[in-house]
Design a protein around this nucleic acid. Structure first.
Lengths: 349, 349
DNA sequence: TTGAAAGCGGTACCAC
DNA sequence: GTGGTACCGCTTTCAA
């Protein structure tokens, strides 16, 4: 340490400054350029083995960790993949989707990206949210769970250097690539099953929890669409909060119905319990269908019929992201589509 | 656009370059310094209202978004708060903890930080993981769910400029601040309840799912500790995978027991179903206790006794993080502690 | 085989 | 009130 550096540090207990590549260079007695080459594997045929060893040793001794911001500033891209989740939706992560996210992050890592979950505040316009994302200059943004994504949002991101905008959920906004999770199909599959078993007076649970609207609306619409193919069929929306009281109140409204699509397995369990406590026979008086096909569905009595959604392979999505980032000529559009199928069990037998 | 700029761009369909503050300055006919002042609210008494308007207009027209990396490079700190979650644990997020994370992120935002969830790969040493985090130069790191955090990890982070390392879960590593979630207490509370109601032959479910070890081990230990206060009490570990088959196999092992602490409500439901299918009476033959006190617990029949954990307020934790970041003189140590209490229902009545 | 230096985008000090 | 400019940490071209 030279005198200037020593006196620059104030008192004795000032925190040690974070080592930079320049510090490593000084410590190893080489130039910063050499350090960069060695630490990035660009040293082949450029730097002698002895020098490489010196540099690596110096880096280790100082506890050097490269500065991602500086690197991405210089290189012009950040290797960051932002996975956007509406903040108020994080609790609603089902195991299905959580597992997808977990594996997706791992796959991104394999491709050299850093996948990061960003909870978007619900307040503020979609464009403000997009700007907040854009400040991080992510290589790609994947919005999930109906995180707001308007055409302007997409534009903001693309103009600020984001190479790919993917949207996981409803059909993509203009300019974005889509991984369509067709919520309507889920409702349609459930309704079609109930209708083709002879039921005609369908209820569809619509969770009162705000934030689930991007899912509940389309599921209801899908059920309605399916019902149009069956003369005499009627679909009734059943608002339900995720509490016992709400479920108990809903029971009366099911008197006129012969089947219910309960949004998902968890709401189905809630409703089934209220129905059974009120003496309603399932499926005799009322058939019930859930969605997500959790283990839960098989544990209920009667066992719960459920719509299972197959998500695309996380590895394939990660590969797509990688491709989109490196090749900007790929035109936006739908890239994947989830599929829904019914798992029939006792509750609608 | 001047001629140099036009010819610098190659063909007609080259993507428009991302606008920089320099571009805004040029567009508004002012200097970069002025742009910086205006866009950061430092303009009071420095820049005329007319100039401010010009700058803001130019920024809007160009769709300018500041570059977080450049800013943090210059300012020396990133405003990033990393919330680390083991990648293989993301699916295990219970609603309790998810809600905490969601609100915590929101609170961080209110303090001007960007909270980001980072799924740490299970492979690689804790130190490698810490280095990956350190590259992002986060202002603070909060590890959760037993994400690996050794003393060396903490050291790597602190040396690379992270102002605060918090650990959510087991007692903190040296140098880190702790938000202790005492898993032992959960097991102890459950066991104490069962023991004081006269039961002596306790089983404790230990999930086979890897990744839950940081929780299941201490819960078992806590139950054992509680049992030592009761002469004649014995505790048997019951390994259980989260499948129906595994639960069915486990039933035989409960013959000798009079009570089971089932790790959490979901494993409890799984086990209860298997027991009931085998004709075991709950709580007559066997008392069952869960944990987390999900809505699920109240929906089961018999209603499930459950240990409820009270987490600290997200707002308070965010305030702590803020304080730690701005005041480095605060000494590391435990800052919060979760509390556990039993909610007695029919399953252990 | 190594080093000097330019520059990525922003900030803030200092001079005008 | 406004502009010039040094610098944050790193990469990479060019020269030596």
């Amino acid at each position: 340490m030279n005198d200037r550096a020593r006196s620059a540090r104030s008192a004795q207990n000032a925190p040690a400054p974070t080592p930079t590549s320049a510090a490593v260079a000084r410590h190893a007695g080489v130039s910063r350029a050499t350090v960069s080459y060695v630490l990035n594997g660009q040293a082949a045929g450029k730097v002698s083995a002895a020098t490489q060893a010196k540099v690596k040793k110096a880096a280790r001794e100082l506890g050097y960790v490269p500065h991602a911001a500086a690197r991405s500033l210089r290189s012009g891209s950040s290797g960051l993949v932002l996975i956007a989740v509406p903040a108020d939706r994080v609790p609603a992560f089902g195991p299905l989707f959580s597992a997808f996210i977990a594996r997706f992050q791992t796959e991104l890592e394999r491709h050299g990206y850093t996948g990061v979950l960003h909870g978007a505040r619900a307040d503020g316009s979609p464009e403000d949210t997009a700007r907040a994302w854009a400040e991080l200059r992510p290589a790609a943004v994947l919005t999930t769970f109906g995180a707001p994504l308007t055409a302007d949002s997409v534009d903001i991101l693309l103009r600020s250097g984001t190479r790919a905008v993917l949207s996981f959920g409803p059909p993509p906004a203009p300019g974005a690539h889509g991984i369509t999770m067709d919520q309507e199909e889920i409702g349609a599959v459930a309704a079609a099953h109930l209708l083709s078993s002879g039921r005609r007076r369908l209820g569809v649970v619509v969770p009162r929890e705000r934030g689930l609207d991007p899912f509940s609306g389309p599921r209801l619409a899908g059920a309605r669409a399916a019902a149009r193919a069956f003369p005499g069929a009627a679909v009734t929306p059943l608002p339900l909060a995720y509490t016992e009281e709400s479920a108990a109140r809903l029971v009366a409204q099911t008197r006129e119905l012969d089947a219910v699509f309960a949004y998902n397995d968890e709401y189905a369990m809630l409703l089934m319990r209220a129905l059974q406590d009120a003496g309603v026979d399932i499926p005799g008086d009322l058939a019930v269908v859930g969605a997500d096909d959790l283990l839960l569905a098989r544990l209920l009595r009667p066992r719960l019929t459920s719509v299972r959604t197959r998500l695309p392979e996380p590895g394939e999505v990660a590969a797509l992201v990688d491709r989109l980032i490196s090749d900007s000529s790929v035109v936006p559009g739908e890239r994947f589509r989830s599929t829904a199928q019914i798992e029939v069990r006792e509750s609608s037998g």
